[in-house]
Structures are given as structure tokens and as C-alpha cells.
Amino acid sequence: MSTLHPTQDPSWRLFQERFGRLQRARRAETLLLVAIAALLLVIAAAYTDFSPAQVAAGLPRIGEYFGKLFSIEPARGAAPVPVLAWDHLFQGVKQPQSIAYWFYRIDVYLVLLWQTVQMAILASVMGFTAAFVLSFPATRTLVRSTLAVMAVRRLLEALRSIPQVVLAFILVWPFGVGPLAGILAIGIHSTGALGKLFSELNENADLRAVEGIRAVGGSWVAQIRYGMVPQVLPGFLSYALLRFEINVRSSTIIGFVGAGGIGQELRRVIGFNIYEEVSAICLLILVIVVVIDLLSERIRHRFIGSLGTKA
């Protein structure tokens, strides 16, 4: 009577077999997925002429271009110098390699940045107002007719699924080159995006207040005004501020198609190869985007905080 070593037990072999089978199946599946992904990658590369040789040929040019962005156009025959140097950093507009020299058109940029932010504000106000009005008919708990809800929802979906920049490009034709086309494009897109979020908030709201207003004979508008709006308004405003951050980003680029703001100027200086100005404007855009994000985040927290404690 001898005891079997565990590895000689028939159940061990069975386990090993099954485990091996599962492992092989899993490995085959992973390999297949990786192979498909790689194959798609190759096809995509072929489709876009993106070969290693092409990229290798392009890399020095990219390096050269980015180098030019941060150097001053040299005089004939001279070597290019970096756009900033420690010795001259805080000297006047006339002194190359100073901050003032790099940002010598700061007055123009600041006016354009102001315009860009105002574009985002107006577009956000437009989007908020339209989305506010449209979100209630798009709420299933408030409207009995499913058809009407569906119609409004499809409308909102259509508004947000056209790319903003495309919309701006189209609107430049009827409204002319300038910020108006950009504002309308961003506003229309915001309406679609906010309307969806707002109607979702409405559907999650407590209906007891609405029923209370209905019970004392309040009209549909009164039910919404006194039963729904007080509940959902903090959420609405928080989403609107988030949207405003996104809209500031959008308004910096919407000018590429002629729809106003700093983007229009950026496209001009890139087109004319005014290298130092390209880097200067890009830096300003980065700064403004970060500042607005931080500011809006702070307002949002304070806002939700105070409303949250009251409720």
C-alpha cells in the first residue's frame, strides 16, 4: 500500500490537461486580437502613406521647424539665436532675446484673447438658454407624448453631432468672416450637448414637488418653474461652467476657418511663417486655457459647495 505522489494522481493529469487547454485557448485568442490590431495598423499606415521611411525623412524637418519657432530669424548669413537669453530677458522691446521683444505684439494678442473669451461666454450663454428651454420638452417624466420627446431629442442629437469647426466654416458664408459665425457654431453645439445633459438631470429629479404644484392647479410651466427648476439648477450651472471651459478651447481654434478670435491670427502667422509669433501665440493660448480651467473649477466648487449646504 503505497501513497501516490500528487503529480501521479490521475486527477492531477486531468487538471493539467484542462488548464493547459484553457491557457492555450486564451493565448490563441490574445494572439489573434493582437494580430488583427497589428494588421489594421499596417493597413492604416499604408492608407495614410505613413511609412517609417517617410517619418524618418520628416523628423529632421519637424525638429528644424520647432527649432525655428523658438529662435529669432537670423540676419543674412548669421546663425539663428534662441528667442530668449538670460542676459536680455527683461530688457526693452528693441532688444532681441528679451521677453518684450518676443511678445512685441502683445497688445494685439490681448485684444484678440479678450475677444476669444467673450466669444466663449456669449456662445455658452446662448447654449445654456436654448438648452434650458429645450431640455424640459425632452424630459420623459414631464411630457406625456413620447413622439414629442423623441423629436426634441433627435434635434438635440443633430445639433451636437455636426463638428463645431465644420459648422463654423459653413456659417462663415452667410454671416461673413468674423467672430459671429464662430459664436453661433459653438452656441449651436453647446445647445445640443447641454440639452442632453440637462434632460438627463430632469429625469433624475424628484417628481413629488412637481406633483404638489400640479395638485394645487399649477400650469405646466408653473410645475417646472416651482417644482423642477429649483432642484436641477445647481446641476445645470455646474454643467454649463464645464461647457464654458470646453468652449474657451474651441473658441481658440474656431478662427482657423475664419470665424474670429485668436485662432484667426494664429493661422495667419503660421501661414506667413512668422515663427516667433507662432510660439508666442501658442504659449498665450496654453496660458489662457489653463487659467480659465482653474478659475472655473474654483467657481464650480464654491458654487456647488454653498448650494449643497443650503439644500
Partner: peptide, 23 residues
């Protein structure tokens, strides 16, 4: 921080028109 469209504009200048700049 810089939008894709800004990068695209810069890369079009650096490597020329076409999908490579987009990629």
C-alpha cells in the same frame, strides 16, 4: 493643452500637406 487642430496646422507646415501631418 494645445488642441489637435493647432498641432495639425503646425505639422502641415513641418511635413507638408497630407494625412501624415494629421497622424
Amino acid at each position: 493643452g494645445l488642441d489637435q487642430l493647432i498641432w495639425a496646422l503646425v505639422f502641415v507646415r513641418a511635413v507638408g500637406l497630407g494625412p501624415i501631418a494629421g497622424v
